[in-house]
Design a protein around this nucleic acid. Structure first.
Lengths: 118, 118
DNA sequence: TGGCGAGATAGCTACCACGCTATGTCGCTA
DNA sequence: TAGCGACATAGCGTGGTAGCTATCTCGCCA
């Protein structure tokens, strides 16, 4: 079981909001496809087909499902996911040759705090 | 005195968050210069020189001051301001040949709500 | 160990955002 | 009414982003 699967959203130390930080977060969110991905990952069980390996709640949704649902090429989807991972908003898990993605709720809460401070 | 100067942030009706809306807001915020402008406009009196015409609290800061403080050309600054105005985050006021800009706190609160819903 | 499938990377093209200079528009004032 | 100052718009060059196809890497399994 994932160590954070049944914890509430962790509380970050109240760090001051940095503009360059904020710019990076908003850049990562400034794409409809990436917003869709984040939305789908809110409920992997409802939004993706059943997975044979990898618990969708624990590890997240399988890369292939996201690629299919986006309807763009696999490399293009891969890059969108990389943008989200680099921004720290999504956590990848490699397992048995597949890669699963899940939301990082802590980082997303921090992003919301940044937006609230604009 | 500004009609909203001593009101709390107005409460918008709870409209559902739309992805294309969200993309537009995040695009407008995905620029360090525009984040700086929004930050400066939080306190026009402290961040800009005293204005001869136009109350900085009521109408906002004078375009010229923003251009100077950004340190870029006047057309470039003008376009950044247009992006913020088009996104509805900043309100322009033309008066006596000058243009003043102030934050739209309602729209900014809505932007924060959008970010919190991602 | 050879083959296959998942996914990242490379390399290309098209497009958009941002900077600049030059110029247009419009209102105020001498 | 001529001139000037504030601001927007036009046009151009450049860098970054998003899409694609082709290819590479690497783990799994027969």
């Amino acid at each position: 079981m994932a160590s954070t699967s049944d914890s509430p959203i962790l509380v970050e130390p109240p760090r001051p909001v940095d503009h360059s930080d904020a710019e990076g977060v908003f850049k990562a969110l400034a794409s409809e496809r990436r917003l869709l991905i984040l939305d789908w990952l809110k409920d992997p069980v409802a939004n993706f087909p059943p997975q044979v390996h990898g618990d969708p709640v624990e590890h997240g949704a399988c890369n292939l499902f996201i690629v299919d649902k986006l309807g763009i090429s696999q490399p293009a989807a891969s890059r969108h996911l990389k943008v989200l991972v680099d921004a720290g908003l999504v956590i990848p898990t490699r397992r048995r040759g597949w890669t699963y993605y899940r939301r990082d709720e802590v980082a997303l809460a921090r992003a919301a705090a940044i937006a609230a401070a604009v």
